[in-house]
Every structure is written in C-alpha cells, then in structure tokens.
C-alpha cells in the first residue's frame, strides 16, 4: 500500500516536472522578448528537472543512487538560477530593454 502511494507520488512529481518543461518550451517559442523567454526557460531546469529528479529519487528508494540524484538536484538548484541571473544581467548591460505592451513596439 505504502509502495503504491510512493510510486503514485513519484509519478505526480515527474508529470509535474514534464509540465514545467512543456510550459518552458512553449514560452521559449512564443514569448516576445529576451527577458520573457529567459523567464520561461529557466523554469525548465530549476523546477522541471528538480521535480523529475525528486520523483526518480523516490522510486530509487534508499540506495547509493539516491545520494547521486540528491547531489544532482543540489547542483541544478544552485547552478541553473545562477546561469539565468548571469544571462539576464548580461542582457541588461548589453542594452536590451524589456518589452512592454503599452509602447506596442516590435519584439526583438
């Protein structure tokens, strides 16, 4: 019973992670400017991959593999937001101005 519960929970986590990847990919293709697209795509790694890995760790159970997965989660949780931050900062200093609806300007 508890195993079924655990597997269901893991499946929900993995499905949620996939949903984040889907949303991030659609955002990358559809959103108007650099900052919006960055906003969408950084969710793929930071949330999507972490959720999927959490699900995988639950399925793997108490095992040395789980330690590796947890280390991987820590790495992604630290490095992915940093990469997003560095990209946004570089974009701002390179002169990209955020797109706004009011000005009705063409997206870059």
């Amino acid at each position: 019973m508890s195993e079924l519960l655990l597997t269901t929970f893991a499946a929900v986590l993995i499905a949620a992670g996939c949903l984040f990847f889907l949303a991030g990919t659609i955002g990358l293709l559809r959103l108007p400017d650099f900052y919006c697209r960055l906003h969408a795509t950084t969710k793929c790694d930071a949330v999507g991959a972490v959720l999927i890995l959490l699900g995988v760790a639950l399925i793997a159970g108490a095992d040395t593999q789980t330690v590796r997965i947890v280390a991987l989660i820590a790495l992604i949780a630290i490095s992915s937001p940093t990469a997003g931050h560095a990209l946004a900062r570089a974009g701002w200093h390179a002169g990209h101005r955020p797109w706004t609806r009011e000005e009705n300007d063409e997206p870059e």
């Binding site: 630290i78 940093t82 931050h85 200093h93």
Partner: peptide, 10 residues
C-alpha cells in the same frame, strides 16, 4: 562590468 556577486560566490 564587475562579475555579479551571485555568480562570483556560486
């Protein structure tokens, strides 16, 4: 442009 403190620390 100095490196962002976040990037530096990470």
């Amino acid at each position: 442009l100095p490196v962002s403190p976040v990037v530096d620390r990470i």
